[in-house]
Design a protein around this nucleic acid. Structure first.
Lengths: 365, 365
DNA sequence: CTGAAAGCGCTAACAG
DNA sequence: CTGTTAGCGCTTTCAG
């Protein structure tokens, strides 16, 4: 039915395909593992390539009978559409970049980040988007930017603790971008982001300590150039201020256990009374624990401690750490969901804040 | 210089492009952010598209002068080759899949895996390969297989704790695949893999314990259906057997802190004397610590403990954990390196084993 | 060493 | 609802 020699000019491209060249290609394909093409499906189903394409893309305007026939052909041939061809023709890559600043990648072992990433990957697995990991080298931001803007992806997800990279702020004016965590130098109301309620969590943690009658508070805060660091400190401060208590016993770390230990030592050396401590993340709390143990200070008898994150190390510490659980997985999933909506031009709020939850354990019963 | 009207048939495709249609497209491009095309570079440099392509692909047979001219054009136009087009034409995707079984993804917070992933990503960032993350759903292995074999990637990297997935073994006969960790049901000498010296590390750990004069050994082993679990147990056993000591005090966990705690309780309940314990990973060691503390058993005074992994939690535990450091980052990098070599058909050994190193700390001075 | 020509596999108007 | 027709942007023989 499609073997008839076409009448138009003889040097047209498709003609070659209809002739023996087709056989020639077949041989090559075979030895290469030869993925079946849309054209082969069309031939088997007895329809045009356009129709097969429509079926593959779930176009509503194809008769049920044909859809069925095509799907059978697809199944029997084990056909898989070629991504590159699809992208080239449609200008949609169906690819989303997971951008991670190099400095962040180095801290990848951070369970929180890993968990967010996992949430993203798991959510995307159910869509037909593919996730590509992009390490944004700190010293060649143009390379990243070029890649992102080079039509290689439909959108980008940015996870980082040093949130709010400038170069990416620019990118977000051209490409759909969703940030994980409030960007620092937010590009105004122009960026999309998903965050956890750092302020609320910190405040709840502190109020819990307050509820136990504790009055001498201190906090090991996170870096003050990172939104989570800022927001958690603010939550702690406001909870204390509301009670008219002192909120000046603050030492900052950088979210690593070592920095937590160092900050704790500095705080203790200030010699001020202390019976309640809020630590801005569980990793630093681990550092705090070791210092407190060394100094012979009992938790929570001498000092009650509350952390932030809820990774499993806190749960198995001695005593188990009271902490603020943040829905890291959900955060990743939400980021992916928001981005897909933006890409598909569907309606979606620019800011999404996920609730945190206080998990009470032995360190601040 | 290239403006002359072509002489062949008037209904050829390129002709349309040369005419006003070109202008038409330009308008469209401009409003879309219009990435410059190879054709534009060619025009600016006054050469053919083929030549530009050669330059872009570092073909050695282009005169220096032309290379220079083309590169200038590329720079001034800020040209970035279109991946999809490249892939379609060359049949090389320059994309590598990072395959992670869903069950593994759920445990992604495992610092070891995160670190391997990081090593992979960092290594690939220096090549022109792109990394795409693929979660292999446990219940639809065909989907994954189809994707991998559908010509979407040039090769795959498989990381998992349940190493040696069957479906992937098949894939590896058609697509270059490198496994992280010795595959369980190895497809014979046919698979490539990079592993750390689990056996050697476990043996060294045990010999260290032996060197301290300890004689009553026990081990919390990993799952016995996973190569690392098997290999570490074998190393422990052989070290003991070589000294003619008993090697039957074994309890297995599944690498989680909880399972480590449970296994420790079972072991203690067996009521056998014990003064040296080798735990197959640091996470389980965390569980072991909490149980030992509860029972009032001092580390290392009553029982010396050695773990395996060396994540930072072990370092900040009380007492700091003596453990076997495995080069997780390097493992990832090596996997990527091996895969790239396989893809590029360069010579590379099927098996690569990275050395482990004993880190002596307080838990087994 | 360089150019011309022919597609890679798919989508997207545009006609029926 | 379905087929026809042009390409998407790049690589790759094949001739010079």
């Amino acid at each position: 039915m499609r073997g008839r020699t076409a009448s138009p000019p003889a040097n047209r491209r498709r003609l070659t395909l209809g002739g023996q060249t087709n056989e020639g290609r077949r041989a090559v394909s075979d030895q290469r593992g030869g993925s079946p093409t849309l054209e082969m499906v069309a031939a088997l189903a007895g329809v045009s390539r356009a129709t097969v394409s429509r079926v593959v893309n779930n176009s509503p305007k194809v008769s049920v009978r044909v859809v069925e026939r095509v799907n059978e052909a697809i199944a029997s041939l084990n056909y898989v559409p070629n991504r590159a061809a699809r992208t080239l023709a449609s200008r949609r890559t169906r690819t989303i970049a997971l951008v991670m600043p190099e400095s962040t990648a180095k801290l990848f072992s951070d369970p929180f980040l890993a968990s967010v990433t996992q949430g993203i990957a798991l959510h995307l697995a159910d869509t037909d988007y593919t996730l590509t990991m992009l390490i944004a080298s700190d010293d060649t931001p143009e390379k990243t930017q070029r890649y992102l803007l080079g039509g290689n992806v439909d959108g980008a997800l940015v996870v980082s603790h040093h949130s709010g990279d400038h170069s990416l702020g620019e990118v977000s004016r051209t490409l759909p971008v969703v940030f994980g965590g409030r960007p620092l130098a937010a590009g105004g109301a122009l960026t999309y982001y998903v965050d956890v309620d750092n302020y609320g969590g910190a405040r709840a943690a502190t109020e819990h300590l307050l509820g136990r009658g504790l009055r001498q508070h201190g906090t090991i805060a996170g870096p003050q150039d990172m939104p989570p660091g800022l927001d958690r400190l603010a939550g702690w401060r406001d909870a204390l201020d509301a009670e008219g208590l002192d909120s000046t016993l603050v030492e900052c770390g950088d979210f690593t256990p070592e920095s937590g230990a160092a900050a704790m030592i500095r705080m203790l050396d200030r010699g001020r009374p202390l019976d309640a401590l809020f630590v801005a993340n569980d990793q630093m709390a681990a550092g705090v624990y070791s210092v407190l143990h060394e100094r012979g200070l009992a938790i929570p008898a001498n000092i009650a401690v509350v952390g932030f994150d809820d990774n499993f190390y806190g749960a198995t510490a001695t005593p188990p750490l009271t902490t603020v659980r943040q829905p890291s997985n959900e955060m990743g999933a939400k980021m992916a969901e928001v981005l897909v909506r933006v890409i598909e031009q569907r309606d979606v709020p620019r800011v999404t804040v996920l609730p945190t939850e206080l998990v009470v354990r032995g360190s601040a019963g």
